[in-house]
């Protein structure tokens, strides 16, 4: 799972007659639980304080969403 990203990209067809400037790359989310089906025992855990803020006890399930339309947002937040 090296180079894993929870956001996948594709290139939709662009028509010469499209009314709006084309978005040449579209993306969709594939969060980590899709690859787990049944969570294994003994995964590394956040501290209780971190977990309450993250919304999950396990870093393997932690996948905060940042809008692909707002590139600055992720940097501002970290």
């Amino acid at each position: 799972m090296q180079n894993f990203t929870p956001r996948k990209f594709y290139h939709p067809y662009v028509s010469p007659f499209d009314p709006c400037p084309p978005m040449t790359v579209k993306s969709y989310e594939t969060p980590p639980h899709l690859y787990m089906t049944f969570q294994p025992y003994g995964l590394p855990q956040f501290s209780p304080q971190e977990a309450l803020c993250a919304g999950t006890l396990w870093p393997a399930l932690y996948d905060p969403y940042y809008s692909p339309y707002k590139k600055h947002e992720r940097q501002d937040d970290q």
Binding site: P31, H33, M36, F38, A54, G55, T56, L61, P64, Y65
Partner: peptide, 17 residues
């Protein structure tokens, strides 16, 4: 909202389990 979305992820996994 990011917290609430994370909870959806966890819940989905629990239902899958």
């Amino acid at each position: 909202l990011r917290f609430l979305r994370e909870r959806e992820i966890v819940h989905s996994l629990r239902f899958r389990e």
